[in-house]
Amino acid sequence: MLDLGLLLTLYPPPKRGAMNTTVPPAIRIKGIEKSYKDLHVLKGVDFDVARGSVFALLGSNGAGKTTLVRILSTLLKPDAGTAEVDGFDIGADPGRVRESISLTGQFAAVDEILTGRENLVMIARLRQVKEPKAVANGLLARFGLADAGGRRVATYSGGMRRRLDIAMSLIGEPSVIFLDEPTTGLDPEARIEVWNIVKGLADAGTTVLLTTQYLDEAEKLADRIAILHQGRIIVDGTLAELRTLLPAATVEYVERQPTLEEVFLSLVGDRSPAADQAAEKDADKEGTR
């Protein structure tokens, strides 16, 4: 069905320069299937995620991205297939898998009644990290939440909440992080902040599996992109490889208009403490999530 040329394009040898071929992938998924009653959500999903890379899983709403992340983070058992995370089988060794991973985003959450600092200290103590308070304060400073650390999370803006959520996921230095739609519902500035955090994670050698429905997000962040459609991975490759799937680019003259995002960001300007506080006040009214 597939010719060898296309196969090589879709499954090239590991790219990232220093990648050693003897290092097993951080995530290896083979033939995962899952149904909810009559609804066959995953019909045999296969892919690998190289250690230290950012892998974007694209798909429309209901494509099964979250189901797959829940399976990989041991919250849900697959009907068929196997998966290894950090070398541990999700079915046979879920405890070791949980030591290697962190989950954040769409359905992981923060405790609204606790303060930001209390949330971090709680996770640090559960992960048996030494000096939980120092760890919490370090993360608050790193994620621009030092001033808000003593306030209840219920008063945070959507962006602050997501930053706290990701900060909680970094405690204990997990080698694999699942980010399930990490920028859904965020304003453009908060999105860019989250993107910068993800880039920082990748630079530090953490493997990131990111699910998103925003194509530009995958384009900006991912080393490799896969599209989950109707229960299967229909393509899996680098952005350059995916581009070759379409007919060669033609050159045409287009007048470049600024995007609305560029207009918004240039008008709103860089994130200043004042802007941050305004965002918090908005969030107070809205009560995001």
Binding site: G95, R98, L103, F107, A108, V110
Partner: peptide, 12 residues
């Protein structure tokens, strides 16, 4: 809220 799932994905 989802914190139940966060706890269940942790090594606790």
């Amino acid at each position: 809220s989802g914190i139940f799932e966060r706890f269940h994905s942790m090594p606790i």
